[in-house]
Design a protein around this nucleic acid. Structure first.
Lengths: 346, 346
DNA sequence: CTGAAAGCGCTTACAG
DNA sequence: CTGAAAGCGCTTACAG
């Protein structure tokens, strides 16, 4: 602290009171204070009462970090998010919070600095923050790395499945197939897929698309975008659509809703109407997809159930470290809204 | 830990290596290890090299919580959010992260359990998590409580101004005035305001509305919704619109974009088109407002600048505890999109 | 019921 | 350049 501030006592804060302070005030031992504050047996009712009052009067706040250190425990939950802008992650975040907070645990958050890229920093922050478990809602690391991390600190995977690691997963391929079949059922044949970067945890949607196209006897076309965020997908989306009507796909199925939003924008930019000129199906059923005026047909991964289940799995892992890995699957379902229709001339 | 897991060694994790382990391995003192690991002077180059290698080999991870305790420092940043579903908060969250993470600090997150209500838990969690500063993006507590908290632990307010407390604020009344004047300029006279619960930090928008209406010689009408979230505002929005055309407001200005979204939905439900039958102006310029198909006219509070500025203020406060309170204002600006038009018959 | 002591993983004077 | 000791705020055996 620089010398020049030393005189500004107005903004100085008194150091927080500790158990030591409470004990000294009462002329008793720290042990008693600790016990009383945590409502543990071994303190007389009257003494407990006096301790509580004094603690209150002194403005005592428990330092839960010191407590954890002393207890050789890790009670905090780390949450690793790929991208805080995508509201699927936000939904997951708040449903995780909805379970973690009432359980009296703290949530340490780490977000990748750049969407759609791997980034070692969040993981390190979480490891050093002494969390007891990491909920990972980012499918960017290879399976082996996930397993390696899981050997150091328990990991709970969200929307992804890795053998040997707690996984609250989604059958992405089932969802992708439903999307393609919906489109084909409408009469589309030129159904393109806009995908994101090829991380190991992210290939299932594309695989489902390919498989569905193949089994329907249709020719797949895949365009790849370097990231997962809407803002950086406009170019790829436009490139996909900017060609003669006879060659242009009549429907686009995207890796996630963010990319679908970009496709809608690109379509609007090219004067194509959705769904009259172009059908669009997203993935995730993010909050944005359901907005009046957006009305995006999409595959619902039930982000809030996923988040809740992940948080519960995290707490379970913390309470029973030795329990076998959880593998809990959710089946996604197609939500048909207004961004899909039969192609022109059908 | 229950007895039955004791045998499941497969899922056991070895306790993390400590500086002590590294020191023992090398037959040196902990001091040296600590110094070398933090790149401090006082260790020979060769010894430092050996320490780093050994630490690496042992999979040593610094326990930054223990380090903070020993350093009598609080380096973590707490972020208190009102509602993780509203994407203004999400925007703030990610811009805060964008500053905090590169600074090597950890972010502890606390979110109110129920939107639009006061909730003591997040504050307590943050206090016990030993954060050094709380960035508060929730205007729900009275000014005095904010000051009281600020006396215990430095607070940085987002989108709100309280004297004596670091504030990265917005002139909400200026924004409200701009919204009303825009509407009046289009020819509207029956301009209603849909507001949220009356917390002390939340009255400026309404005050700006009232003042603008008064100075334009128009009769204000205020409807109150019990919360700030879209999901719980449909009823109030519908009640506001469900009356004969001659008595119905031709324009609604809402406390935030979430409420504006609810108004749009209620309008659609009643068969009213936006903007032909009803103009809607929101507040915040959330991500949703800018989506193609939503195109909401709104007041931009520059959530990302706000978040960044708040995070910088937080770091400044941590580094220079005695510095006088920051009061940094942002002027909001109206973003005209497609949800506003002249009223029918003008 | 109450207290003295040791320890969690780390850092910081203080000696040598 | 290196190490022994004390301490951060807390908890946990262990005695009395």
């Amino acid at each position: 602290m620089p010398e020049q501030w030393t005189s500004e006592t107005a903004h100085r804060r008194a150091p927080a009171a500790t158990q030591e302070d409470v004990a000294r005030e009462l002329g008793i031992s720290r042990t008693l204070v600790s016990l009383a504050l945590r409502d543990r047996p071994g303190v007389s009712a009257s003494m407990r009462q006096r301790i509580l009052e004094t603690a209150d009067r002194l403005g005592y706040r428990r330092n839960s970090l010191a407590a954890e250190l002393a207890q050789r425990q890790r009670t905090a939950v780390g949450l690793h998010l790929l991208d805080a802008h995508n509201d699927v992650y936000t939904t997951i975040l708040s449903s995780v919070q909805a379970v973690i907070a009432p359980a009296g645990r703290r949530l340490v958050l780490a977000v990748n600095s750049r969407s759609g890229r791997d980034d070692p920093q969040p993981r390190n922050t979480l490891l050093e923050a002494n969390v007891g478990v990491i909920i990972s809602a980012t499918s960017v690391a290879p399976d082996d790395e996930v397993r390696a991390l899981n050997r150091i600190l328990p990991v709970v995977l969200v929307a992804r499945r890795v053998e040997g690691v707690d996984s609250v997963y989604v059958d992405h391929d089932v969802g992708a197939r439903a999307a393609v079949e919906h489109l084909a059922g409408l009469g589309h044949t030129r159904i393109a897929h806009l995908t994101g970067p090829s991380f190991e945890g992210h290939t299932q949607r594309r695989a489902g698309y390919l498989e569905a196209m193949r089994s329907l006897g249709l020719t797949p076309e895949i365009a790849t975008n370097p990231g997962f965020a809407r803002e950086e997908a406009f170019g790829a989306a436009r490139a996909l659509l900017d060609r003669p009507a006879s060659e242009r796909p009549t429907a686009v199925f995207t890796h996630n809703d963010e990319l679908a939003l970009a496709v809608r924008e690109a379509a609007a930019d090219l004067g194509l109407r959705v769904p009259e000129d172009l059908s669009v199906v997203g993935f995730d059923n993010s909050r944005a997809a359901g907005l009046t005026g957006v009305d995006l047909t999409t595959v619902d991964i039930r982000g809030d159930e996923l988040g809740r289940a992940a948080a519960e799995a995290a707490i379970r892992r913390l309470e029973h470290p030795g329990v076998p890995p959880l593998q809990r699957g959710f089946t996604p379902s197609l939500v048909v809204r207004r961004s899909t229709a039969p192609p022109r001339g059908v």
